[in-house]
Design a protein around this nucleic acid. Structure first.
Lengths: 124, 124, 124, 124
DNA sequence: GTGGTCTAGACCACG
DNA sequence: GTGGTCTAGACCACC
């Protein structure tokens, strides 16, 4: 599991964990039916509290990507988000692109970044 | 000021305001030397608390885009972000792209969204 | 045994099993003196862990409905719950009814559901 | 706010709190636009931890009934559950009715309970 | 003032 | 073994 936590990142840790797993699902590294590692293990690996990882799993379950069952762990049940609109992904996309442009990148540099990122996402 | 506040957007309001202004700067509608409208006016226009708009301005000042002076309002002083938080922006880009892919969009659909957004940003 | 396990049901599996058997008892399909099928068989039929079915039997025994004996299987010994947890049941009833109302059902629709359910329970 | 916590109730506390508020919404005591009391106040009133109440609010938000915003509290935004199917309300109804019947109540006694409960729910 | 996040650690529930 | 709940308390973010 290649998830990284960035202290300087404004996003809360549990969000970063969830996003990391979402990326793995989008990239096809975690397919429908795959079992996620135990909460405790992820917590130990990343050096964060178990509750924090549990919050990430809860988040993913809320979005319909995984199914968490009490004694038997978490499993990927879908590769499609349930609430497409709630997250306002397009709006966030615009904001991020504005940031990249404001950091001095040219249009083609931004497009290169986007293409590189998309290439890693199998289903795209 | 063409800024909109979306109730359903999960981002905090002050963030939405700051992002709106950043987009205007990136698009060239607000150039170096331009004066931003008074906090009170923006607050009234958007129907939000003055403190919220003030927080947005503070954020923009922290990023080096504007300069806020007591009595003389806020002015755009740069069109380039001061913070070199490139990695964080790229990380957020990846997360947003993963969300778009997980919401069922194909690679070309995502690229269309990106191009549309970039076209509105003059400097890109 | 007409018990079904619903993956989408939030109740724990052992609870679903116990409730299924309780419904059979309430409906009179399992009468005082009847023998329940062996844990292994139920587990195999439903495709769940034996421990899970055992937990359900334990629950039913705790409520005074069945008697589990090593070697001789489980037998229905009563058609009346031992625990006087009436208030808790009523509280749960209120919560479920609130949910049904909040899901948009009218009073008469709810009453229809209730009547249908009661009709299947012989002793009612 | 007439919410009660029952130690003997099997449901987790945060669930009992959420159910209590749902009942108030279903009964029309909390209408669309109403503001919920602060997390801290509810926590103090009920004698539970703030995190527990926060979990209840999160639950209600997930179900689409309230909208929680950072600095400005929680507000009722809908009187209809967003995820009607996820909760399997009808299945839980059958289980509760079976319990009431098994506790020795006749059909008419159960119907009286149901009617009393529904009478308190305005929208029913 | 409001809610959100995170931690440490205890204890419970499920399979 | 797995995840869930709850607590106490600290600190942060938002309006």
């Amino acid at each position: 599991m290649y998830i990284t936590i960035d202290e300087r990142d404004n996003r809360p840790i549990y969000h970063q964990v969830a996003d990391g797993i979402k990326t793995l699902i989008a990239a096809g590294e975690l397919r429908k039916g795959s079992t996620l590692p135990p909460v405790r293990q992820v917590a130990a690996d990343l050096g964060v509290n178990q509750n924090t990882v549990a919050a990430a799993y809860r988040e993913l379950q809320k979005e319909g990507l995984i199914r968490v069952r009490h004694g038997s762990g978490a499993k990927v049940v879908s590769q499609v988000l349930a609430n497409k609109d709630d997250e306002r992904a397009e709006e966030r996309l615009r904001a991020v692109l504005a940031d990249l442009v404001l950091s001095g990148r040219t249009r083609s540099e931004v497009l290169t970044l986007v293409n590189e990122a998309l290439t890693r996402l199998a289903r795209a």
